[in-house]
Design a protein around this nucleic acid. Structure first.
Length: 597
DNA sequence: GCCGTTTTCGGCCCGACTGTTTTCAGTCG
C-alpha cells in the first residue's frame, strides 16, 4: 500500500515544516502521530480515502477529522493542499539542514531568516566565512560541533540493523558490568524492545561511583568521540567493527551509545524510562497524572501538582520505583513486556497476553545445507537443532530457479530426499524431514511440479525474484501460492531486506483471509536483515486469525542464534505460542503437515 | 490537530546536558 506509506511521509514532513515555521507544537505532534499511525497500519487507507469514508478513518486512533480530510483529498485529487502550501514556503534543502545532529527548528529558522541559509551547502558557506558567529548564542564550540555533525551525516547510512547493534551492546554491557562500583548493568531502548533497526544504543547502570564508570565508558575500545559527559549521563560515538553477513558489511561506520547512571534503588523506573518507547512513556505519564501522580525516571510519586519542583528533589518517597512490575501495578496495568511498549493499544489491556518466548520454539522448518547454499551438512545442522531441544528439523534447500543459490534440479532433489530420509533413520532424538524452499515464480506458480512437491514433507514457498512488482500483481502472485494445496508455509512473504529494498506490498487483508482459508502459515523469517513478516504485519495477521511460522532460514551454524530476533518480532505482533506452528508438540505439528498430503 | 470515567473546550510528559550565558534556551531522548 504505497499510498499509505507516501501519506505517512507527507505527514512527517508537514510536522517538521510546521515546527520550522514556528507553528503550534501540538499541531506538530498531531501530524507526527498521524505519520506514525499511517506507517504502522495495515488497513487499506487508500480504499477508505477514495470512498470518502471519514467515519472509518476517524475511527483509527490518532486520525481525526483534519487528517481524514487530507487523506481523502490526496486519494481523490492526487495532492494535499496543506502540504503544497508548506512546501512552497520552505526550501527543500532546509529539511536536510534539520537532519544535522544538534540543530533543531529554532536554530535552523534563525539561520534561514538572518543568513539566508537554505541548504547544507549554504550553511557550510557561512561557517567558512565566519558570518555564522554573528548569530545569537552561536560560539566557536557550537560551530565546531555543527561541522563535525555534517561530516558524520555524510558518511552515515540509515539506522543500524538489530543483529549488528546487539553485538555492540553486548560488548559494552559486559565491559561496564565489570567496572568497579557497578551493581547492575543492562541495555534498554529500542534494542530491548526488539525493534528491527536501532538509532542508538542505550545502556543503563546502577553504581555508587559515577566518575569511574564514565571514565571507563568514554575511553572504551573504539570510542571515536565523546558527545556528552555529565554526572548522570554520557554519550559516545563508537566505531562498528565489521560484521560479516550474507549480505555484506553494514552501511554504517559508527553508532552512538548513551549511558545513563542511576541509583540502584530506582532501577525499575529508570529501566522503564530508558526502554521507552517515547510514545509509551508519554501515555504512562498521562495516566499517572490522571491518577494524581507523576512519573519520571526516579519513580512514581504522589503529586497534587501544586509544587512545580520535581518530587524527588523535594525528598518525596516514591509510591513505586524498584521494579517495572511495581510501577505498572500501581498504575493499574499488567506488566507489559518491553516488546509491546509502542503505544499500539497496550495501555488498554487488563491482562497481558502470554506472548511467545524463545523457549517455546521446538522446530525449525526452514533450513539449507551444502546441497544448495548452506554451509552445513544435514547431520551438522540436525545436531545443533537437537542441542537446542527441537523435536523437528525440516531441510528445505532452494529450488531449481534459484540458480545463484545452488537450487536443486528435480533429479538432485529426489536424491536429496533419499539422503534426508536416511539421515533421519540414523539420528536419534529428532525428526529430520525432507522439504524445499520452493520459489514462487513471478506468475505465482511454483518451481517444481505437483508430483515432486507431494513427495516432500514440508513445502516453504517463497518469493525471491520480481520483488518490485506492484501491489496488485504481488497480491495475485502470493494468493496463487497460498491456494496451492501442497504449500505449508509462505517464506519471507515480502522478500524485503531491511534498509536495502522494500519488497512486495500486497493487500494484506486478502493475504490473511486466504492464508486462513487454505490453512497456510505465514513466516517470520528470523534473519535480522529480513524480519519478514515484520512486526506490524504479524500483529494484523494475529488479529485476523492466521497461523505463523518462526524460522531461522538456517544457512550457517550461527543462524540458529537469530531466533531471538524473530521471537521478539512475534512478541511485537502480540503473537501467542498456540498460534505459532513451531511451538506445537511433534505429533500435532506432524499431523498438520501430513494433512496437506 | 486530537481527544474526553471531570471536558465538545481546554488541555496536551519530563529531565539531562551543552554552550552560551550570569539565569537559560535549545536540543535530545
Amino acid at each position: 500500500m504505497s499510498f499509505t506509506k507516501a501519506a505517512a511521509t507527507m505527514f512527517n514532513e508537514m510536522s517538521q515544516m510546521i515546527e520550522l515555521l514556528g507553528g503550534d507544537r501540538f499541531r506538530v505532534n498531531a501530524h507526527a502521530k498521524a505519520a506514525r499511525v499511517l506507517k504502522d497500519t495495515t488497513a487499506d487507507i487508500e480504499a477508505l480515502a477514495e470512498a470518502g469514508d471519514t467515519k472509518a478513518l476517524v475511527a483509527i486512533e490518532g486520525i481525526g477529522k483534519g487528517t481524514a480530510g487530507k487523506l481523502i483529498e490526496l486519494a481523490q485529487h492526487g495532492n494535499m493542499s496543506e502540504y503544497d502550501e508548506l512546501r512552497n514556503q520552505i526550501p527543500k534543502g532546509l529539511m536536510e539542514v534539520l537532519e544535522i545532529q544538534g540543530l533543531g527548528p529554532k536554530t535552523v529558522k534563525l539561520m534561514w531568516d538572518e543568513k539566508g541559509v537554505e541548504s547544507i551547502d549554504d550553511l557550510l558557506k557561512i561557517i567558512e566565512d565566519g558570518s555564522i558567529l554573528e548569530l545569537p548564542r552561536m560560539g566557536q564550540k557550537t560551530v565546531d560541533n555543527i561541522k563535525e555533525s555534517i561530516e558524520f551525516l555524510s558518511q552515515q547510512g540509515g539506522r543500524l540493523h538489530i543483529g549488528i547493534a546487539q553485538g555492540v551492546a553486548d560488548r559494552f554491557v559486559e565491559m561496564m558490568g565489570q567496572v568497579k562500583g557497578v551493581k547492575r548493568c543492562a541495555f534498554a531502548g529500542s534494542l530491548r524492545r526488539g525493534k528491527e533497526t536501532i538509532g542508538d544504543i542505550d545502556i543503563l547502570i546502577a553504581t555508587s561511583d559515577s566518575d569511574t564508570a564514565r571514565a571507563a565508558f568514554t575511553t572504551a575500545d573504539g570510542v571515536m568521540k565523546v558527545l556528552a559527559n555529565g554526572e548522570k549521563k554520557a554519550s559516545i560515538r563508537v566505531a562498528i567493527n565489521d560484521e560479516s553477513s550474507r549480505w555484506g558489511a553494514e552501511d554504517n561506520t559508527a553508532v552512538q551509545i548513551d549511558l545513563r547512571i542511576v541509583d540502584e534503588s530506582c532501577w525499575g523506573s529508570a529501566l522503564m524510562y530508558f526502554t521507552g518507547s517515547k510514545e509509551h512513556n508519554v501515555r504512562l505519564r498521562e495516566r499517572a497524572i490522571k491518577q494524581g501522580m507523576t512519573l519520571n525516571e526516579y519513580g512514581l510519586f504522589k503529586d497534587d501538582g501544586s509544587d512545580k519542583t520535581p518530587p524527588q528533589q523535594r525528598g518525596e518517597k516514591p509510591v513505586a520505583c524498584k521494579t517495572e512490575e511495581d510501577i505498572y501495578a500501581k498504575l493499574g496495568l499488567p506488566m507489559i513486556p518491553p516488546t509491546m511498549r509502542e503505544d499500539r493499544g497496550e495501555m488498554e489491556l487488563t491482562e497481558t497476553p502470554r506472548v511467545i518466548e524463545v523457549a517455546d520454539i521446538k522446530a525449525e522448518l526452514h533450513s539449507h545445507t551444502t546441497a544448495s547454499d548452506g554451509k552445513m551438512s544435514i547431520e551438522e545442522s540436525a545436531a545443533i537443532a537437537k542441542s537446542r531441544g527441537f523435536h523437528t528439523l525440516a531441510i528445505t534447500d532452494h529450488s531449481q530457479s534459484s540458480a545463484v543459490a545452488g537450487g536443486l534440479s528435480p533429479e538432485r532433489l529426489y536424491k536429496h530426499i533419499k539422503a534426508i530420509r536416511e539421515a533421519n533413520k540414523k539420528i536419534e532424538g529428532i525428526t529430520i524431514m525432507p522439504g524445499s524452499e520452493v520459489d514462487i515464480l513471478v506468475d505465482g506458480t511454483l518451481d517444481y511440479d505437483d508430483d515432486l512437491l507431494a513427495s516432500l514433507d514440508v513445502v516453504v514457498a517463497s518469493p525471491h525474484a520480481g520483488l518490485r512488482a506492484k501491489p496488485k500483481q504481488a497480491t495475485k502472485r502470493l494468493l496463487k501460492a497460498i491456494e496451492h494445496p501442497m504449500v505449508h508455509i509462505i517464506g519471507h512473504p515480502t522478500g524485503r531486506l531491511i534498509e536495502r529494498r522494500p519488497g512486495l506490498d500486497p493487500d494484506w487483508n486478502e493475504i490473511f483471509a486466504a492464508a486462513i482459508e487454505h490453512d497456510v502459515a505465514l513466516e517470520i523469517n528470523c534473519h535480522w536483515m529480513r524480519l519478514d513478516l515484520r512486526d506490524t504485519h504479524v500483529r494484523a495477521a494475529v488479529d485476523a486469525g492466521c497461523k505463523i511460522a518462526i524460522d531461522c532460514d538456517v544457512h550457517h551454524p550461527y543462524d540458529y542464534d537469530n531466533l531471538r530476533f524473530g521471537v521478539m518480532t512475534g512478541q511485537r505482533g502480540w503473537l501467542t505460542p498456540d498460534r505459532c506452528i513451531n511451538t506445537w508438540d511433534a505429533s500435532t505439528l506432524h499431523a498438520w503437515l501430513k494433512s496437506k498430503r
